[in-house]
Nucleic acid binder design. Structure first.
Lengths: 236, 236
DNA sequence: AACCTTATTATACGATCGTTCAACAAGCAA
DNA sequence: TTGCTTGTTGAACGATCGTATAATAAGGTT
């Protein structure tokens, strides 16, 4: 919508006085911004990934309001124009970051399950309580997540949200199945557990003084127990 | 750095063609924005209230990103400068709106409880399930709430959040007490119920296709039951 | 009437927003 | 070497952000 299309012919024809190399001067000669190297002519995939990671860091640090083109470019050690070379716009970059962060969270949960051994109940508990320990229980991750929620008005972002949450519930349903929860109960049980965990996680990050991570873990475990008690009663 | 600061001198020196009264032109002559009258020299308290309500409407419509001075002023049928006359800044206005909307929600829940009659269990159920019906279960209200969450980095907003949630849990604890939940259990029970309801409410508003309001209500009711079953067992 | 107080408007400022684009630079092919 | 492709820069645009402020308008007091 912004930016014209014809005015440039005259304006920029004469080269600007000091535009030899540009960016370099603002940073350490070869290590831009925050440690990421990648200063020149990166592999397209690596550059895309680096931009996504920079966006995630900015979202975690400054939330939705701070995640604008220039700060992200600075964080990535790159000029602002480059973002539009790799992504259709800032919204597309943020959407891609949503998917990437969602994947990371998913991996962290999977790791917690894997570390729990082979007992189905232990694996389920691990999956559920992982949200109350690092790296999930993290104020910065919540800020990132809220930023995504605040953008679900755009269909592009809403799609990612649905996909990420659907997968979360799918994983949970599989774990419930391994624990012997009846197929007809799995869907709603997964929804309830997801909601409880989300709500506890949200409030735990938002105002950590109202209860502790241990209390949250205890509440989630009790909720799980109640499903098995009920299931045992109705099965018999 | 961009845009320059010198070109404006010319651009804006001549007043915009139709700026006798300014805002008026966009709307009905004497009923600015959305029905609020109050066009000139209002009582300070009424004006403050009208600005807060306009902010709430804009937050509901456009979320956190859209809640900036000018759109709010348009919604209130007022010039942008007036906002800084009544509030220390846009952040203060939004904080005040948080309190006001929190109060409204609180009132809506109280009304649901009052409508439920005298049976303590019915009153508790009404309080809990009111979140899955209008006016609470509303995409626009969620957008408002997410906007507040996204600002909890600022201490001013975080305080309001803590106060609002503390009150929510207090009310819930009182209802639990009426239902005979042991004093020692009330705090954590209230936290768990709040979390479940919040999580269900969040996802119900965010992606309404994953489950229905009725299902959410059913899940919340079952959770309540489980607390009474447990309590009955341990009491006897 | 003249005066004072204050609600309100309208405009301006400097900063920053997302996007565009001509120019520069790096690597590869011929 | 010369060309060609393309990653990359830096500057500019128009829009909009939050805030400040001089001028105007309204109401009340004397």
């Amino acid at each position: 919508m912004a930016g014209g299309g014809e005015r440039r012919k005259k304006t920029l024809t004469q080269p600007s006085p000091a535009s030899g190399r540009g960016l370099k001067g603002h940073f350490e000669p070869d290590a831009p911004a925050s440690g990421r190297g990648l200063s020149k002519r990166a592999e397209p995939d690596a550059r895309r990934q680096s931009l996504i990671e920079a966006t995630a860091r900015v979202l975690a640090r400054d939330g939705a309001t701070g995640a604008s083109v220039r700060p992200i470019a600075v964080e990535a050690g790159v000029s602002p124009g480059l973002i539009n070379h790799y992504f259709a716009g800032i919204d597309a970059l943020i959407a891609a970051t949503y998917s990437a962060v969602g994947e990371q969270v998913s991996n962290a949960l999977a790791a917690a399950v894997a570390a729990a051994g082979n007992d189905p109940r232990a694996r389920l508990t691990a999956y559920v309580t992982a949200s109350f320990a690092p790296p999930i229980a993290d104020r910065a991750l919540l800020a990132t997540w809220i930023a995504f929620w605040s953008l679900t008005g755009k269909p592009q972002i809403a799609e990612r949200h649905d996909a990420i949450y659907a997968r979360y519930r799918e994983d949970l349903e599989a774990l419930l199945a391994d624990c012997g929860i009846a197929p007809a109960d799995r869907r709603l049980t997964a929804i309830a557990i997801t909601a409880l965990v989300d709500g506890l996680w949200l409030e735990l990050c938002l105002s950590p003084d109202s209860f502790t991570a241990d209390e949250a873990r205890g509440l989630a475990e009790r909720q799980l127990e109640s499903y098995f008690v009920r299931s045992a009663n109705s099965d018999r």
